[in-house]
Design a protein around this nucleic acid. Structure first.
Length: 558
RNA sequence: GACGUCGUAGAUCAACCGGAAGAUCGCCGGGCUUUCAAUCCGGAGGUUGCGGGUUCGAACCCCGUCGGCGUCACCA
């Protein structure tokens, strides 16, 4: 018998391209990648597209893009940089798309071996492998879960070649085994939902080992199953959660609306996005799809996303692309998900890929499912952001703006010298990339004739109360600011505030808060000197004037 | 339902194959700040799912029980 331990390590990630890359899939890929990289092994990417109805080239492209973003490179598989990954591929064991392998007759060859040997039989055009008493009890050892044994009576014959699609395509069970063997895969790392299926795969390896010359290739690999990632509620994390969240906000909060009214609202939302030019998102979505989404008959993520954008709602991140979109760093996503089920054996939680490659092994992978905790992820992300140099952070945020935030990308702050100053000021309290953007929207607000909202509560506290004491202070400041030059305005203004506060013998906050409210609408901004510098003198004065007017109006009303 | 598997603070995990249950996130309180969701300091939270047993001693070993999850598809 051959011992898989004698072969050079080969692991693989084998997603089916029926959607975007799920965060759980990314963790599985990470473990497989790290295991190979830590042992000078090879890592293969194989696309399991035998389900013709649900597979799509778009999903394949998305998976490749997400793997690249995460930094999980592969030695064999579709070429990561090719315009057409179906034709350009890396490695000598290809092709790496199962649809292509089926066309080459690879699976048929082994089906025939099994059929001829009486290990399998045809039924309704499909081919099934004999199990049960024909094969006996099946036992195997999982590197994570340990010894597993299933009695022959509990094993039923199962389909290895589908009768559908012209009887040409293998099922998942058959294709994985054949491909893993032919590609020299020594360690099969995958989600625990496959643990029970593994008896089928073991049976296939054993049957084919007997029928081929090369029993070295058909020796059973090491299996390592990883626990699932769950939602806080206990359900499995799935892309449907996005639809659920969107519906909860859109439909459940509008119990009085009829389905017809809901549909027309949804159409309007879609129309708004269409005007904004987000065609890719919504191009193929027709009214029927919208209606069935409302009916809970489909969970189309794009419709969920339409609702989220219209209502300013943030959907739960499920797929790798969601996390990128929400402004998480790839290294943090990897670090955090690795921790969901694995640990180095001590209290260390922060580590990079090099550390993981060096220390990862199956004996430290837990068996229990784990709940995905977004708060902890966010905290990790904030720590990682703070650990970056100011320049790196500015680049990172700039890339993010270019990809996702045209509102900032079109603005002077982004394009001029101020960008670094802005980034440096917001870096210390950013937990995600878009957070400082959202928190400082006033910086890119248009001053020309646009109504600016001043938060009522802070305004009352800082300006209206005590007979409008704050208004007088702000007026005083306004006059003082007017005399300052454009150059170095923020710094000078800040000095002025200090001066006046000291002269008047009061806390400088009494002066600073009204200014903060005037320029930002609220009470939280980066340090005032930076904020006012970014805004410039004329915008600052304009906003102070508008704020004074609004405050006086409110004062007379009370 | 059958089979499989898991069960340590609210969450993620530790606890050197039986020897005083710890860390991080979150939560609460305080300090620093002109503001803060940032930062700093401190605190609360565990009959280790539950019930038996073995043992001088059990989170750990044994039996039972409850609960979660997975598979039982011509989806992967």
């Amino acid at each position: 018998m051959s011992d898989p331990a004698n072969k050079p390590v080969v692991t693989r990630f084998a997603p089916s391209p029926t959607g975007a890359l799920h965060i759980g899939g990314a963790r599985t890929a990470l473990f497989a990648w790290a295991y190979a990289r830590g042992r000078q092994g090879k890592f293969t990417l194989r696309i399991e597209d035998t389900d013709l109805k649900r597979s799509s080239p778009e999903s394949t492209h998305g998976i490749i893009r997400d793997m690249k973003w995460l930094g999980l490179n592969w030695d064999e598989g579709p070429s990561p940089h090719a315009a057409d990954p179906y034709t350009e591929q890396l490695g000598n064991n290809g092709p790496y798309f199962q649809s292509q392998r089926a066309e080459q007759g690879i699976y048929d060859h082994y089906i025939k071996l099994l059929l001829d040997a009486g290990e399998a039989y045809e039924e309704d055009g499909a081919v099934r492998l004999k199990m049960g008493s024909h094969r006996g009890d099946i036992a195997f050892t999982d590197a994570v879960y340990g010894d597993i044994e299933v009695k022959a009576d509990d094993l039923e014959d199962f389909v290895i070649r589908k009768g559908e699609d012209g009887g040409k395509l293998p099922t998942f069970h058959f294709a994985v085994v054949v491909d893993d063997a032919l590609m020299g895969v020594t360690h099969v790392i995958r989600g625990q939902e496959h643990l029970s299926n593994t008896t089928k795969h073991a049976a296939l390896y054993d049957a084919l080992a007997k029928l081929t010359e090369d029993d070295f290739a058909w020796a059973r690999p090491t299996w390592a199953h990883t626990p699932s990632i769950m939602n806080p509620g206990g359900s499995k994390m799935s892309k449907r959660d996005k639809a659920k969240a969107a519906r909860a906000s859109f439909i459940d909060n509008n119990p009085d609306k009829s389905p017809g009214e809901l549909l027309s609202t949804l159409k309007q939302m879609k129309g708004v996005l269409y005007q904004r030019g987000q065609f890719a998102l919504i191009d193929e979505i027709d009214d029927d799809m919208l209606a069935s989404f409302i009916d809970k008959k489909n969970d189309e993520a794009r419709i969920a996303s339409i609702i989220a954008q219209a209502k300013g709602l943030s959907l739960p991140e499920i797929e790798v692309d969601d996390f990128r979109n929400s402004g998480y760093l790839p290294g943090v996503c990897l670090n955090y998900t690795a921790l969901l089920g694995w640990n180095p054996g001590n209290d260390q939680e922060k580590f990079d890929l090099g550390f993981l490659c060096k220390h990862f092994d199956f004996d430290r992978v837990g068996k229990a499912n784990s709940t995905f905790d977004r708060d902890k992820l966010k905290s990790f992300n904030g720590d990682a952001i703070r650990a970056m140099s100011a320049e790196d952070f500015a680049c990172e945020l700039a890339d993010y703006v270019k990809a996702y935030r045209p509102d900032w990308g079109d603005h002077g702050i982004f394009n001029g010298d101020d960008w670094q100053a802005f980034c440096t000021a917001v870096q210390e309290r950013a937990e995600t990339l878009p957070q400082p953007l959202d928190a400082n929207g006033y910086l890119i607000a248009d001053d020309d004739g646009v109504e600016y909202d001043f938060a009522p509560k802070p305004m009352r506290k800082a300006m209206i109360n005590s007979d409008g004491a704050g208004i007088k202070l702000l007026e005083e400041l306004r006059d003082a600011f007017d005399g300052l030059s454009e150059d170095g305005f923020g710094h000078a203004a800040h000095e002025k505030i200090n001066e006046l506060a000291e002269a008047a013998g009061i806390n400088m906050g009494k002066y600073a808060q009204p200014v903060r409210i005037a320029v930002s609408g609220g009470t939280v901004t980066p340090p005032l000197d930076v904020t006012l510098d970014l805004l410039g003198k004329s915008a600052t004065l304009e906003r102070i004037d508008r704020c004074l007017a609004a405050a006086k109006e409110r004062l007379t009303k009370t």
